[in-house]
């Protein structure tokens, strides 16, 4: 067990020095910080237009932003977790999987006191710790920005909702990192190691949810609202594919936490789905054999 933890610690240190993962996490954090500000700017712009047309007597409808919760401004962060966070997780996982093969150090490791499974588990733990730190930093940034927008400290229920949102993002990102790790550790080419998990990410994020709905693909970039089905064969396809549309499952949880538009039962199902995703990736990782990771990787 201590060697698994030593591997995890080493992985964390290595990721903190690697250019690709650092750049992606930097972009992720920057986007998270400004996502709430984008929400605020939208509010100010729409409110300004509403005030103008309201003064001219062109509308009697209330301001759509009137009375919205401060958590509303965190909605944009959801899609950044799925898009930029997802890609950052994949790149971190691939980097971790490729590292020992590129350094020609795998045989030295495997002649020490650690098994193939132990090594891969240590790597997954290390990458997950790296992503936890990134999510923790993003959570802190969002918390500060939301406090500035609300011009008051966040209350405990708001803090809890944000913590739950980012905690729900961890199995999604760790699962994607695990897919990156699997390909990084076994692919024969570096390009295959990077492209294959991105293709799976695209499948999970865009293709599976699209199969169960007639909505336009752009609707999938909607931060929190679940994509609606329209009945008939779409219901059947949705029933089959939606459990595997892990990004949509995360959005269901986000909808429940940020604006209460998703039923508790849906959120529970989504949480189970995300946990099962991470579990499936873990099982696949543990099925990798020593000979598979010892193969030469070509650029």
């Amino acid at each position: 067990m201590s060697n698994i933890l030593a591997t995890a610690k080493f992985e964390l240190l290595s990721l903190s020095r690697d250019g690709g993962p650092r750049l992606m996490i930097g972009i992720f954090l920057a986007m998270m910080a400004i996502s709430s500000l984008i929400g605020l700017l939208t509010n100010l712009t729409v409110s300004d237009v509403w005030q103008t047309i309201s003064q001219q007597g062109l509308t009697v409808a209330p301001n759509p932003f009137q009375g919205v919760s401060v958590l509303y401004y965190a909605r944009n962060s959801v899609i950044y977790i799925i898009l930029i966070g997802g890609l950052a997780a994949i790149i971190s996982g691939v980097t971790s999987g490729l590292r020992d093969r590129q350094a020609h150090s795998l045989d030295m490791i495997l002649t020490r006191q650690i098994s193939t499974r132990g090594l891969l588990l240590g790597k997954l733990l290390g990458v997950s710790a790296w992503l936890t730190i990134a999510l923790g930093a993003a959570l802190s940034l969002i918390g500060v920005v939301l406090s500035l927008i609300a011009q008051r400290p966040l209350d405990w229920s708001e803090i809890w909702s944000l913590v739950a949102l980012f905690a729900a993002g961890l199995p999604l990102l760790a699962g994607l990192a695990g897919i990156g790790l699997i390909f990084g550790a076994t692919a024969k080419r570096e390009s295959t190691a990077l492209v294959s998990p991105i293709a799976i990410w695209a499948l999970i994020t865009f293709v599976f949810p699209q199969l169960g709905t007639a909505a336009r693909p752009i609707a999938l970039l909607n931060p929190v609202s679940a994509v609606a089905t329209i009945g008939g064969p779409f219901d059947l396809l949705n029933a089959i594919f939606s459990p595997f549309a892990f990004a949509e499952q995360f959005k269901n949880i986000a909808a429940s936490l940020l604006d209460g538009t998703s039923a508790a039962a849906t959120s529970a199902g989504a949480a189970i789905s995300l946990t099962a995703f991470l579990g499936l990736v873990f099982v696949l990782l543990m099925l990798i054999k020593r000979d598979q990771i010892r193969g030469v990787v070509n650029e």
Binding site: R17, H104, S105, T111
Partner: peptide, 18 residues
């Protein structure tokens, strides 16, 4: 056996950033 041996493979690069 692993506790009794040391091994240096051919063309080892190690971890450049560390």
């Amino acid at each position: 056996v692993r506790s009794k041996i040391g091994y240096l493979p051919e063309n080892v690069q190690l971890y450049n950033k560390l």
